[in-house]
């Protein structure tokens, strides 16, 4: 029986806020910048306790990213906070030149990623950010799956030298990663071991995939679930080890099919170990207003979609 201990329900952005506050206490070089979204990013505690290390940039994301790059000169570790849409597409050129090409130790922390931002609609529901960020040389891309892991990832990226994109979200979701679990950038977690199909998921789709695995288990299908919290560098070793066993893969993410986790996995299987793959991702479409869960269902990134993709890919073996 697939069972996970649940440690409550919280949003991943709150995990970021707690992690950042802890960094404030333990790492005097950490500074934080925000573009008028302190509350949304859960940065309040850091702002309150470390005001001299907090920089309110106003609604000027390009200047914020440029400043963050400059702040590394002299040894600071800047964490920028705004919505994922404004952390990436709006400031791509600033990230490309001042952060990635210049290889600056900036942590771009992006909340409200994907459809689960919900009611604000498609202007804010970015589904292209993983693709944009992973294409940049020097950039590390991390997409943690729950509150606890987002906190652990926030602490871990401060120790990592170089540019990082950390993606998290708005909705309250179950917490299933242990509070004391080890988090290592680039080392995926095998959450469920199985033999019939490998699911490789990131972010909120990890919980959806756990739900799917339970449904599949009841139907006699044995699922191996990999939480691929680091999209770049991708943990090929864990992936290939699993594929050698299951011989097929479903990728699941809250992102466009093009350019996301699925494409990173496809690159590995087409060049190193060819097996059938199915994508659970948004298919070349903008989102719309709605509740997070309504949107996941409508845009086919729900647990039922993971179940369907698994049954389909197993038939293609």
């Amino acid at each position: 029986m697939i069972e996970f201990e649940i440690f409550g329900n919280k949003d991943t952005r709150s995990g970021f806020g707690e992690g950042l506050h802890e960094l404030g206490k333990n790492n005097s070089e950490v500074v934080a910048l925000c573009a008028d979204l302190i509350g949304s990013l859960k940065m309040d505690a850091f702002v309150k306790d470390f005001p001299e290390r907090f920089f309110q940039a106003g609604i000027s994301e390009a200047n914020m990213i440029g400043m963050a790059a400059g702040m590394t000169i002299g040894g600071k570790i800047p964490f920028t906070g705004t919505f994922a849409a404004f952390s990436t597409g709006r400031v791509y050129d600033q990230i490309r030149q001042s952060v990635a090409y210049s290889n600056k130790n900036v942590k771009i922390c992006a909340s409200h990623a994907g459809l689960t931002l919900g009611e604000d609609g498609a202007t804010h529901q970015i589904l292209e950010d993983i693709g944009m960020m992973k294409m940049l040389p020097n950039m590390t891309v991390v997409v943690p799956c729950d509150f606890n892991q987002t906190k652990q990832a926030t602490l871990a990226i401060a120790e990592h030298e170089g540019p990082v994109y950390l993606r998290f979200g708005r909705p309250v979701m179950p917490i299933f990663i242990k509070p004391d679990a080890e988090f290592k950038i680039g080392k995926a977690d095998v959450l469920i071991e199985g033999t019939d199909v490998t699911i490789v998921a990131c972010g909120h789709l990890v919980w959806k995939s756990i739900e799917a695995a339970k449904v599949l288990e009841a139907q006699g299908v044995s699922v191996e679930l990999i939480n691929m919290h680091t999209i770049k560098p991708l943990d090929k070793e864990t992936l290939l080890k699993s594929l050698a066993k299951t011989k097929c893969v479903v990728t699941a993410e809250e992102h466009m099919r093009a350019g996301g986790l699925g494409d990173s996995v496809a690159q590995v299987i087409t060049t190193e170990y060819l097996v059938p793959q199915e994508y659970v991702a948004v298919n070349d479409s903008f989102g719309e207003s709605g509740t997070p869960m309504e949107l996941m269902t409508k845009y086919h990134i729900d647990s039922q979609d993971v179940v369907d993709a698994c049954l389909k890919v197993i038939k293609r073996k």
């Binding site: 920089f55 390009a62 400043m67 790059a69 702040m71 001042s98």
Partner: peptide
């Protein structure tokens, strides 16, 4: 922007 960051 880079210079302002360095100045901060």
């Amino acid at each position: 922007s880079n210079a302002i960051g360095a100045a901060e």
